[in-house]
Write a protein that binds this DNA or RNA. Structure first.
Lengths: 226, 226
DNA sequence: CGGAATGTTGACAAGGCTCAACCGAAGTGG
DNA sequence: CCACTTCGGTTGAGCCTTGTCAACATTCCG
């Protein structure tokens, strides 16, 4: 395993090449196929991951079975960082929505890394603080914006995360159903479908079965910031 | 300053009395009067606080001026823990809604404490993880529940935080306007007023100008878990 | 007393949800 | 290769919750 994959991760900020090699030596490689889970909500949080290949859907279930998607992780991103803390549970479930590969460290190994490299702890905390802030922003948007704006924002975020330029516009390189988009913005399949249809009429997007192209990103931004 | 005030704070878990005394010696005492601010959103985050007296409203503004209240802090609670991280900004504003006193440490002092007591860092991280989880729960509720349930939940949380038994029912010991309740559950003043009125008809609460008594907490729980 | 906050209530509109019927594409098995 | 099933998507009707706007009442406070 090439240590350079970790090089630009904020979590390993301040690590030298040798240190990264050492950290990688401690890692295990996990393969999880499409549809399977890395872990489930409320399992004891005993492993953290760095995604190398595929996409992971991080979602949470309500007591009555509704789901919301909190985040989609793409390579090369960290997830389940909560595992650095002892005696926690995973707050979300992590499902592979494509065939995935990830590096993983057990809580024990994370403990060892923390002790050997004190900066690791503060990097982890920094990461957590960033998530916290992202959440506050999301929360604010959910509380104050209409579905239309929220969906536009989500497409824009996906654009940054996984947008691919094609002659048909910017392709969002991930199989996303209407249902999943709905779970990302706290609404229903029908509403998402209606919005995408109406945007398609205005040549803002083009969308089909589990795929979306963005044709007019400025219009989308205008909707988001309306 | 009596060091025992810090004794039960998760942030100082694992500190001996002597260590707590040392930590307190490094603190400054802040007084902030009702209506004034400890800090504003987007100020550089250079101080953390432990509230000793009064209440603090932690709120966030949208670009277009809407406000939501993320948390009300009561004694003895920590806020602005994000200040342990260098080069961050406060993600919220902190307004004293009563005359307040708080212990405070500068980022420098926090740095020194972290170095002297490694457990402090992990306590801080733990605290952050807890906030993160609380947020995810809040987020989920906001996304999936109706205003009625959310308001009921908020009253129940306030009950745990600041409920006082009286002959008139359980008094929520804090001046909270309809507007503020609305900002806590992401809705409008009118809707809160209507809900409280209708609950008053059913003898679930009694409420007046900036005050609320809970008369039937079971009914409230039933609404929350509906 | 007068003005500023705060709260109540009604009328109305709209956004979004539910339910349901229907369509089309993709996959599957004989 | 065709028939069938499954999955994902679209769309309409109706309704409910909630937001908006506005007038008015009540309480507080200087």
């Amino acid at each position: 395993m090439d240590h350079t994959v970790l090089h630009d991760l904020p979590l390993f900020n301040g690590f030298s090449s040798d240190e990264l090699k050492d950290v990688i030596k401690k890692a295990s490689l996990f393969r999880v196929e499409k549809g399977a889970y890395f872990y489930h909500q409320e399992d004891p949080a005993d492993r953290a991951f760095v995604l190398l290949k595929g996409r992971v859907k991080l979602s949470q279930l309500t007591p009555d079975g509704q789901k919301i998607i909190l985040r989609i992780a793409a390579p090369v991103q960290v997830f389940a960082i909560v595992a650095v803390l002892p005696a926690k549970e995973y707050p979300v479930s992590a499902e592979a929505i494509e065939d995935c590969e990830a590096l993983s460290w057990s809580q024990n190994e994370l403990q060892i890394i923390s002790t050997a490299y004190p900066i690791f702890t503060s990097n982890a905390m920094d990461l957590m603080a960033r998530y916290l802030q992202d959440f506050q922003t999301l929360f604010l948007q959910l509380a104050t914006e209409r579905v239309e704006q929220r969906l536009a924002r989500i497409l824009l975020r996906l654009h940054d995360l996984i947008g691919l330029d094609t002659e048909d516009g910017i392709f969002l390189d991930m199989p996303l159903t209407r249902q999943e988009l709905a779970e990302m913005c706290g609404t229903t399949l029908s509403t998402v479908s209606r919005l995408l249809s109406s945007w398609e009429k205005n040549a803002i997007v083009r969308s089909g079965r589990a795929k979306v192209f963005i044709k007019d990103i400025l219009a989308l931004k205008a909707i988001a910031d309306y």
